[in-house]
């Protein structure tokens, strides 16, 4: 831990209460996660750790509103997302959540700038010039100021992942969710990515939830949530 303490007086950005996800489309029901209770506050970097198959990814897809719980409640920025319609969840995702995946998933036909502009274009709040300026600002923040015109295949692995993080931040979300974002990066680039997450929380008050297998990196964040067999065994709720 780096000693940075999350501001406890504020409301959590996201909280889960009794969240369970059971898959029923196979021959037998499979419980992905069960009775999850957790909170994440602004200014926090939270690492979700656990062995393979423990439900880490399933948990963050639920938090990111890409999946729906079978039971329980997910409150995002004070709003019960489990009661929201599909289109309302899409808007919440667009406005409040930024995703980073293990693979960058940049659109190969678009330049770095255009990839970063995609969420802004979808949100439609900024004009073309303002969107370009925002994309340039994000690229600059991540040391990619000269790479805006480059397509993904012209960037290194670390650069692509940084562009993907910039894209996740394009709409200035409250919460960034990262699923093994350093899984394909070397240790240097992994450290850069985690450093970015810490800067985001300190400087901009965002919350970051990051799934990782790298326990050394996990120790550098504010809090760890450990999952075993789909259940939180440690760190779900922040302690004062």
């Amino acid at each position: 831990m780096d000693g940075h303490m999350p501001p406890r007086v504020r409301e959590p950005i996201v909280s889960l209460d009794g969240v369970t996800r059971i898959l029923t489309d196979g021959p037998a029901p499979v419980t992905l996660v069960a009775d999850i209770a957790m909170e994440v506050f602004p200014g926090e970097v939270v690492a979700v750790t656990g062995p393979s198959g423990s439900g880490k990814s399933s948990l963050i897809y639920l938090i990111g509103l890409l999946d729906e719980p079978t039971r329980g409640r997910i409150v995002l920025d004070g709003r019960d997302a489990t009661r929201a319609s599909r289109s309302e969840r899409e808007i919440m995702r667009l406005e409040k959540i930024g995703f980073v995946f293990q693979f960058h998933f940049l659109l190969p036909e678009f330049s770095a700038t255009d990839n970063i502009m995609l969420p802004m274009r979808k949100l439609g709040r900024l004009g073309e010039m303002a969107m370009r300026a925002r994309a340039a600002e994000l690229l600059g923040q991540f040391g990619l100021g000269a790479a805006g015109h480059k397509r993904p295949h012209q960037l290194s692995g670390g650069e692509r992942q940084r562009v993907a993080i910039a894209r996740a931040l394009a709409n200035d979300p409250l919460l960034v969710i990262a699923d093994e974002p350093t899984g394909n990066l070397d240790s240097r680039n992994s450290a850069i990515v985690f450093d970015m997450f810490r800067r985001l929380t300190r400087e901009q008050g965002k919350a970051v939830i990051v799934v990782t297998h790298d326990l050394d990196l996990a120790r550098t964040v504010d809090r760890q949530i450990r999952l075993v067999d789909g259940r939180v065994v440690d760190g779900g709720l922040a302690t004062a």
């Binding site: 990111g64 890409l66 599909r86 289109s87 899409e90 808007i91 995702r93 667009l94 406005e95 995703f99 995946f101 998933f105 659109l107 995609l118 969420p119 979808k122 949100l123 894209r167």
Partner: peptide
Amino acid sequence: DVAILKSIGFS
């Protein structure tokens, strides 16, 4: 691409 667009918020 479809997955990432949906995760961004494309309907």
